[in-house]
Structures are given as C-alpha cells and as structure tokens.
Design a protein around this nucleic acid. Structure first.
Length: 318
RNA sequence: CCAAGGGUGACGGAGUGGCCAAUCGUACUAGACUGUAAAUCUAGCGGUCUUAUGACCUACGGAGGUUCGAAUCCUCCCCCUUGGA
C-alpha cells in the first residue's frame, strides 16, 4: 500500500465480479469491505440484490439516526453497510455517504484499509467528491409537487430562484426530480443562494478501479446468467415474502428496484413470468449502460475488464 | 370450402388519397446527473448527401392498375386470425 490512510474503491458494471475481487483483496491487505450498493443497504432485499451473506449474522455496531451501521462476516472479511434500514425507510446517497465516512474513519484508526465495493456510482461519487448541505429533503414539499408537470415546476423555480433555473442543463430542466430538488433548496434558503459548491469530505487519497465489459454481448450474457441464478436462488419466494411482510413496489421507491419491480408485477398478475424476467434483464442491461457512462467519464478511475482484474493485477495498482 | 377481420419500420400499435419517412409506446444508440440514483431526465433512431424548417433514394405482404399525387382506392395473388362446415 502506498499510503496507510487511503481507501480503495472497486466499482463497475453489474456482474463483473466486484465482490469477489473485493474479498480477495481484503484478505490480502487486511481490509474491510464497505458495500456501496443502494439496494443491499436494505434489509430483506437479499436474493435479488445479490447479498451473499452465507451463514453470517448481522452485527450492529451503532445507530446513526434510523440507520443501523454494522457488518456481516463473509469469508472472514467484514462487509459493512448491508441492512441499514427497512425497505420503507428513506435512504439517500447523502445518508449512505455519511455512514460510510464514519466507518472509514473508524477503520483508519484501527489501521485497516477500507475497500468500497459496489455499483452505486452516485453513492461513491458523493462519498469521494462531496456533499451539499444546502437543504434537507422536504418530504411534504416533494409530495405536494409530485404531480406537477415540468413546466409548472420550472415556473415555480423561476419565481423562487431564476438563477438556479438558468443553471440547469436541458436534461435537468425537464427532469421533475431535479426541479423539485432545486425548489426545495430555494425554499429552504429563501432563494437566491443558488446551489453552493461541494463541502469537503475529508477523503483525499483513494485508488479507484472500474470494471467494465468491453463487449455488450458478453455483458448481456453475464447478466442473463446472473438473473437465472437469482431465480434459482429463490427470487420469487423472496418477493412473496416481502409482499407478505407488507412491502409494496411503491414503498418509498425502495422496492422500485430492478428485479423486484418486475417480479412484483408478476406476482400481482399484471405480467407473465416470462415477460417479467425478460424485462428484468433489459433493465439490468440499461442500468449497466448508465454505470458505464458514469465510470468512463470519471478520470479518477482505472478502468479494466473483468478478466484482467485478478488479485495480482489489483495488488499492483493499489 | 364459405363468412368476417387482418397483414405498417426491431416489436406492439396509429394512420385509411396530398401537411407521411409515416402519431405514440417499447427496445436500441449517445448523453445528463451536487441529499429519491437499480431512480429520474434529454437527444437521436430507414439510407445517402448536407448549412438547412433542404435534396434525393428505398419503404406500409407481393404484382399490376386508377390518379397530378396512394400506406390509404381498384384487380389478382400469397399469408394470418376468428366464426361457419
């Protein structure tokens, strides 16, 4: 290791073997894994989200607000930030990053190396590059604006903070979620403050690895296999159980998640199983595409393909 | 064999004489992203050329025909679905 106070980040497209690589690296360099996975952070989302917790039990180390911070032990490696909350709870990239940061600090004190592993690139970016503390989410406001059209929202934002509106690119200008967020910020600050720069995260040394398939067919094939494995692993039973426990697809959008969405639709009878599975796969391809866009546009990442990312290769990089 | 309804771009599905290279949805391609991100959104999406709200070519099962002009009307052929036997 070049620096004892560093962190390693392993991200990449779906089904590229991030976890496997992370585990072998952790064993080698005395590290802990911090899961950067926006779905594995939820309790009960196990099979479809791909949590491989074997026989391990969750060990809660502390509470941070409604979130429980703890770990599972997989192959002798501690894996943090699974099961932070229930599928009904709100968990944002910000919340996750705060939790991740606290673990990183703790691990550094223990002279252990945090290895961030996961495909939630937005979460990782929030952790690495910063957070804005301008305004907390305003649930009521969000609900009240939920059904407004983009042009109505633009109008609202214009009245509150025209600069913020003008700063938006074409895509964001028609994106209700972005608009609502800006309105939220403008309302909280009284407008005019616009969006501030990022707050320093205190994390400055990191090695980032991005695993990407160069070939689309290969990617799709791996995704297909993975989906099949999830089905074989009890995906349908998991969905039934979640429904039985009272969780719905619309629950805070948390179950509004690839795989769960489709299988819940099947369970409700609005999709055939065949259609549900094929849509699931398609959503996975699309997600993987977005991951690729994100990762390739970030110069901090060392990009490589899944088959060249061996432990030896990683050891040379970190 | 008869009756009825159909065959449209990768798929679903509009259009029923000119404003149709053809609404819309999906898929696909590229992109955006500062507290919902496995989310949300933007653009493109027959081909060639091109500064273009531009030109030309090829296209709405096949072959002909009517018309200044057809995915749209007519004739014949092929295929599909449902009802009748």
């Amino acid at each position: 290791m070049k620096n004892s106070n560093t962190i390693v980040v392993i991200t990449g497209q779906t089904a590229t073997g991030k976890t496997k690589l992370g585990l072998s690296l952790a064993k080698e360099i005395n590290g802990d894994i911090i899961s950067a996975d926006s779905r594995q952070a939820y309790r009960y989302l196990d099979v479809i989200s791909g949590k491989d917790i074997e026989d391990s039990n969750f060990v809660e180390v502390k509470k941070q607000g409604i979130y429980s911070i703890g770990y599972y032990t997989i192959q002798g490696v501690r894996v943090w930030l699974y099961d932070m909350c229930t599928p009904k709870d709100y968990l944002s990239a910000y919340d996750w990053a705060v939790a991740a940061r606290s673990i990183i600090t703790q691990l550094h004190q223990e002279k252990r190396t945090p290895i961030i592993v996961g495909g939630a690139f937005h979460y990782i970016r929030t952790l690495l590059y910063g957070l804005t503390a301008i305004a907390e989410p305003d649930k009521e406001l969000r609900t009240s604006l939920m059904h407004e059209s983009a042009s109505q929202l633009q109008q609202r934002l214009k009245e509150l903070d025209e600069t913020a509106l003008n700063a938006l690119n074409q895509s964001d200008r028609w994106n209700p979620r972005r608009l609502i967020r800006r309105i939220e910020a403008a309302a909280a600050t009284g407008g005019g403050a616009s969006f501030p720069g990022l707050i320093d995260t205190g994390i400055h040394t990191f090695t980032c690895i991005g695993l990407l398939y160069s070939d689309t067919d290969e990617l799709e094939q791996h995704i297909n296999e993975r989906v099949q494995a999830r089905l074989d692993g009890g995906a349908l039973e998991e969905v039934d159980l979640l429904i039985h426990m009272g969780y719905r697809p619309e629950h805070y959008g948390m179950l509004k998640t690839i795989g769960y969405q489709q299988l819940m639709a099947y369970s409700k009878g609005t999709l055939t199983l065949e259609a549900a599975i094929s849509q699931w796969k398609v959503k996975e391809y699309q997600y993987a595409k977005r991951q690729k866009t994100f990762i390739t546009h970030d110069p901090s990442f060392i990009l490589t393909s899944p088959d060249t990312a061996t432990l030896d290769w990683v050891m040379n990089v970190v």
